[in-house]
Computed example of a mutant assay.
Amino acid sequence: MKNRFTLKSAMRVTFLAALCALSSITETLAQEEKQFNFSVALNSDQFFGFYPTFQGSYGFSEKTQFTFYGIHWGGGTAAAWGNWTEFGIGANFQAAEGLSINPQLGVLSGNLLSSGTRGPAIFGDGIVPNLTVNLLKEKIEGQFYYGYYAPIRDKAPSNGTTLAYTHYWLNLGFRASEFFSIGAHYEQLINSGGSNVETSTDVYQWLGPYVQFAKPGGGPFARFSFGTDLVEGNDSFFKLTTGFSF
């Protein structure tokens, strides 16, 4: 009887320990899920063509997260830019309720910056120091982005040039509900330098409204922006984005 009682006791203790461990693992996984966020999007406009993107974050605290992102520029027009791709990391800081600031540094691969598309596709085509500021309130949403695309290698032929670009946008909208929002979008791309570029020139200046539909509480979303191009000789612009936030 003594041995049988000892065996049963050991089995009971083992079972309780397993339950405790399972509970601890489940709680840890739940905490990890809350700390980790990820979203993917499919984008299309008349300059960059079709380009999938992803972005993610892992929270170290309620106000600070490690961030990472990637852009598959080579999916559209950029296929002619040596399958141009961008990958970067950074940190996101909650500056106030509904306001976050996210500085990041990206690395490019391809040949757009290092040779003006006239050289080999390489890793280290350029770097992209960039900043994103997000605003999300009950009735207001907005985003500001600024990035400088700088060549770090010169692979241009003797009669060619490296290229640098400044890219930024600003949008601000009214959230009529969690499902629907409407606002205005302004975006500019500037050819701002290069080994044989004497003066900067505007590639485009887009200005117009946007409409967005999103699943309340997170998940799938879709946004359509359209309007005029303020650069002389250009006409209009359109940008379509659809994606999913996990």
Rank of each mutant, 00 (worst) to 15 (best):
L108T: 11
D154M: 08
S236C: 04
N102H: 07
I127Q: 06
H167I: 02
P216I: 07
T241H: 03
N134M: 12
G233H: 11
R175N: 15
V128F: 10
V211P: 03
Q205W: 03
R175E: 07
P120K: 10
S245G: 14
G218R: 03
V231L: 12
A176G: 09
S225P: 06
D202C: 02
W206E: 06
G126W: 07
I127M: 10
S181T: 09
K137Y: 15
D235E: 14
L189D: 05
T117E: 10
G106E: 05
L240A: 10
F213V: 15
K215W: 13
F224I: 10
S114L: 03
F237H: 06
Q104F: 07
Y186A: 05
I101A: 01
K239H: 14
P157T: 01
F244C: 03
P120C: 09
Y210A: 01
R175S: 13
G193S: 01
F246N: 07
T166C: 05
I190Q: 11
I190S: 10
N191T: 04
S109C: 03
W206L: 05
S192F: 01
Y168V: 00
Y146A: 12
S181P: 07
G106R: 03
Y146N: 11
F224P: 12
A184V: 12
G124H: 08
V231Q: 13
A214I: 06
P103A: 11
R175D: 06
Y149E: 11
W169L: 10
D154T: 13
F144L: 08
T242K: 02
K139G: 06
G194Q: 01
F237M: 10
L163E: 11
E198Q: 03
G116C: 07
S100D: 03
S245P: 04
L230P: 03
G119C: 12
T162M: 00
L105C: 11
L230D: 00
D235C: 02
G98R: 11
T162L: 01
G160W: 15
D202S: 04
T241K: 09
R175G: 08
G173Y: 08
S177P: 07
S100P: 05
L240Y: 02
A222C: 14
F123Y: 14
S195V: 04
H185N: 14
P209W: 01
P209T: 01
N134L: 12
F174P: 02
L230H: 09
G142W: 05
F123M: 14
L207T: 10
A156Y: 15
G243T: 01
